[in-house]
Amino acid sequence: MRMAQMKLKVINVGTEWFVPFLEEQGVDVLRVEWSPPVERPSDITSILRKLRK
């Protein structure tokens, strides 16, 4: 397991509640922009597919 001599870096995806607690401990945090994928109804998806052809 590679860890010795390395510095913890946390990549946060989802709620940002824990981020300030990590930063308070001196941890480098990358915040990721994330939102749920838009779910299209299947009929719209099939129309989009036809349009792309």
Binding site: M6, K7, L8, V10, I11, V13, F18, D28, V32, E33
Partner: peptide, 23 residues
């Protein structure tokens, strides 16, 4: 805020990366 595809450019060999997922 970074996009997921931007992450590799933000990491170095000295990092021990841990992704915290709470979706």
């Amino acid at each position: 805020r970074y996009r997921l595809d931007e992450l590799p450019s933000q990491m170095s060999a000295e990092d021990y990366p841990v992704m915290l997922i709470s979706t």
